[in-house]
């Protein structure tokens, strides 16, 4: 196994240009599980923790290498709340937002926030230069993203006009070190517009456009309207059965947390 340790973005892109099939290593909280328990044996690893450009967090940009520990005090409440629910202190100290995008698990705790705010994902390669993809162009299926060989995730670009009304919640079997059964992030703008995205209830994080449209049209939603919002969200998610939960429970839980996040945002 060859391990390359670039010290700048330039070096990282060079390394990837030389080894387009290389495996990227950031915090290692997903990769090392695969190596230790699932027999994954990458030939070339590019380790990214020494690349300073990936550690930036400013002006609506969050570098791919920013850890969950740092994000717990990020200026975006929805992202900070999500960061606090990731794994354990050890995992938060190592794991990164870029790792969530790279692994592209529908259960990635940071992804509902990115989907709710409509984040762009910035990627770069020696051959293709920089490009920005909308979150739903980047996340294309369970554990699948549209990163090309030789490409690196630089970070995410967030809209600059986000409101402070951002809420995140997840349902799991215990309080920490748990992969969510369902998760959601909701953002409510001053004009009443609501965006909601849900995790673990579809092949990728997904938005609930009918629910969003219904509730965004309502400047002062009543409890009945909030309940209807939850019901629509439950209709729009696309969960599956697995060892953590049945689809029926996931659908129900998604509706409950969606309604509760709305109530929190209205409070």
């Amino acid at each position: 196994m060859q391990i390359l340790r670039p010290r700048s973005l330039d070096e990282a892109l060079d390394a990837l240009a030389a080894h387009p099939g290389a495996t990227l290593l950031a915090g290692g909280t997903d990769l090392m599980v695969q190596v230790n328990y699932q027999g994954r044996r990458p030939e070339v690893v590019v380790a990214l923790r020494r690349v300073p450009e990936l550690l930036q967090m400013e002006d609506g940009f969050v570098g791919a290498g920013v850890t969950w520990s740092r994000l717990t005090s990020a200026p975006w409440p929805g992202l900070a709340q999500a960061a606090r629910t990731v794994g354990s202190p050890q995992i938060r100290a190592m794991g990164t937002l870029g790792g969530n995008l790279g692994t592209a698990s529908p259960a990635g705790d940071g992804l509902p926030f990115l989907a709710a705010v409509g984040a762009g994902v910035e990627v770069a390669s020696r051959a293709g230069g920089r490009r920005t993809l909308a979150w739903d162009q980047f996340l294309v299926g369970p554990k699948r993203n549209s990163l090309q060989p030789g490409e690196l995730i630089l970070g995410v670009r967030l809209p600059t006009d986000l409101p402070q009304r951002q809420e995140f919640a997840k349902v799991g079997a215990r309080n920490a070190m748990v992969i969510s059964i369902a998760s959601a992030c909701l953002v409510r703008f001053a004009d009443g517009a609501v965006r909601i995205a849900l995790g673990s209830v579809g092949p990728t994080p997904l938005r609930a456009p009918r629910a969003e449209a219904m509730i965004s049209a309502d400047k002062h939603p009543s409890p009945a309207a909030a309940a209807e919002f939850g019901r629509l969200v439950a209709e729009e998610v696309r969960p599956i059965d697995d060892h953590r939960s049945t689809a029926a429970y996931r659908r129900h839980a998604a509706g409950v947390i969606a309604r509760r996040l709305l109530e929190r945002a209205l409070a």
Partner: peptide, 11 residues
């Protein structure tokens, strides 16, 4: 121990 959930301190 990742899929079989024993309680942790927070639980």
């Amino acid at each position: 121990l990742s899929r079989y959930k024993i309680p942790r301190t927070l639980d």
